[in-house]
Design a protein around this nucleic acid. Structure first.
Lengths: 217, 217, 217, 217
DNA sequence: GATGAATGAGTCTTCATTCAT
DNA sequence: TATGAATGAAGACTCATTCAT
């Protein structure tokens, strides 16, 4: 379950070559954008928190919006794509093993669970800002339609053919599944993060809920 | 299923005594807040769209934030409370009839479905701005805990006792149910409103999904 | 020789209804633009000299450039058009009197002399900024071609037909005449205004120079 | 009529020892200053067009203004001084031949004509920026008074004594002559360069105009 | 010598809010 | 009650200049 930490990656902890200043700017921007939203965040505040002159921000990002996008774009990819681009899923299919519905859902939830857990501020920004920036929505939709949806459909249909799940329209099944998973993650990490969560148990219930909700009887 | 139109109500079409100018201000504010968010909306734009002078806004609302709150507060109540403050539910209990799980869920979904359908911009504002304004969150949580949760728990426990639904923790059941309903509404009205929805069918599937997901077997 | 004072007019001393603040802004802008040029003048400096908040400037002029144009446009008209839109000229023609070459040139020079004398800063701005703003150039050319040139040509050709002036190309005659007049005014008011000028004498010489320069012999 | 190309000279194509980078900086600066004016030109733009780092400019010129002056100063000299520092003129006098008024004016015009033609951007900068920088004005006046005026006066007076030109004040004669020449050049190269000019003809007319304008009759 | 990241003062412009009318 | 001119603080962004490499 080694899931990368996106903020680190964003800041080139390993690969990219950002100046330390640029890294600090990104970090500060992520923090404050998550706290108060892009529109209510001033570049001067970002500069202050990053310990950098305001002009420095604009040396690295032509506009404030470019800074936002350079934060949101990577999360978008990392958040959505692996929903079904995981090796595990490939394995499932290779094995022609369709009895693993439970395993599959579990894998799915845990994978995204760890991702969100490690990237709460980024996910917050993603959800919050997508509402206001049409470009982000478009980017997201395109990516979703191209990379996530086709594979998701494939899987669902396989299970439908195997008569393991109900014969609902594929889109409906996808919607119900994603909604339940994302609903859990949002509740867990964004809405009531301070609740006394027993994550494993809760995930267990959620898996069962989905499985029973879709099970062909 | 006569569900009130909140915007009308907000503007006192009937009861409150708003000046026509004030009504126009509210309407304009709702439109623009929903489109671009509170923080990115200028009072001058609201004034322009409302056809009033900038000063007029501040005659009715001391600050821009007060204007936001005067919009969001009522929705919050109307959105959340009826989740379980409906007469129908009272009836269900009075009749000591616990076999109506299906009916209950259906009632629940349809009730909120019509509400959201009639109040999309307001719901958008509610969801978007709650992320940024702690006061709104607090207000919401308080209201939820006081007015919605207790009744919801009561119902769930009744069904648990009647062994109609699984013995999950009550909070988990509530979470799964609300998550699925809200997930549907958000997808339906905010994320992909342009999709070619067959609402009745989709609601039917959603009800089944919840019922099967929770059914005690 | 009652020539209006353009700055007063600009500021609506008589006709237009500018706020006093707006008048002060215009006056300050004219002063500073003339002194240091549009590009080197900051709106904050204009505001300070006008005794006004910086924001007030932008209530009246959407941008700094609009402020410039609202200053330059009127001068352009007033400076160029009367070059040959004067009643005197009409009279000259009506009388079918073409012996008045001297009178005509004299009228021309004096008319523009008083105009420039009263509007030095505005003329400075006009000359200086036209070099940098293509829009101003275009506006000027259009106006010149439509309103000044045709009448000027008409006059010149009349004198050519009457054999009072040389048979140079009309455009050349116009160029030589305007160049000499404008050259005098620029030298007199912009380049060496502090020289001990005997204006009447100098104008007399200039008239003679033009007349002899063009005289058909 | 071998007139040097000032830009080349400025950049030390031959004599001075500029690094190639420095040459590129000068060239870029001249281009952009001429296009949009000193005040509206950013050093970063100069650096970009010159293909050097921003810092490099300041290695060669302490300030942006120093860069301007290092461009304008040489033109000032080259533009004004030869107005009467030409060998031809010396010859005229040596020969005690004062009948060459025509020849003199012709020489004068052509000399400056070729100069301006080869150095349009530099002349543009000179004219445009002199309006805004008192230092440039002072430098120019000093140079004019010391180097140009005395010789010009000498010549004019010689012709006055020989009764070849009118007995106007010497300054007036100089003003009328220069005004007409410069007026031609400015019209020809800066104001309407795209007009279909027949330069030789036009110069011929201009010479005649000056000669007749000043001729003693 | 050349670089280019960093600076912070300064630029134009916006905005919520006030107040005299 | 309604207006809209006026405000000045704050916003995003630019720019000449410096300096460590």
């Amino acid at each position: 379950m080694e899931e990368e930490d996106l903020i680190d990656e964003l800041m080139g902890a390993a690969e990219k070559d950002l100046t330390p200043k640029q890294a600090k700017i990104l970090q500060a921007a992520v923090e404050i954008f998550a706290e108060k939203g892009y529109a209510s965040t001033s570049t001067s505040e970002i500069a202050k928190r990053a310990g950098v002159a305001e002009g420095t921000i604009f040396r690295h990002y032509k506009t404030k919006k470019e800074l936002l996008i350079s934060i949101v774009s990577p999360i978008m990819l990392k958040f959505a794509v692996p929903f079904f681009a995981d090796k595990f899923l490939n394995d499932v299919f290779k094995e022609e093993n369709t009895e693993n519905l439970d395993q599959l859902i579990k894998k799915l939830i845990y994978n995204r669970y760890y991702f969100v857990k490690k990237n709460i501020p980024l996910v917050k920004i993603l959800l919050q800002e997508m509402a206001f920036h049409a470009e982000l929505q478009d980017k997201f939709k395109q990516m979703f339609v191209e990379k996530v949806l086709p594979r998701f459909k494939e899987v669902v249909e396989k299970f439908k053919v195997a008569e393991q799940i109900k014969d609902y329209p594929t889109e409906t099944i996808i919607r119900l599944t994603m909604t339940t998973i994302i609903g859990f993650l949002v509740t867990r990490f964004l809405i009531i993060p301070d609740y006394n969560w027993d994550d494993e148990q809760e995930i267990e219930y959620t898996i069962e809920f989905i499985r029973n909700g879709l099970k062909n009887t």
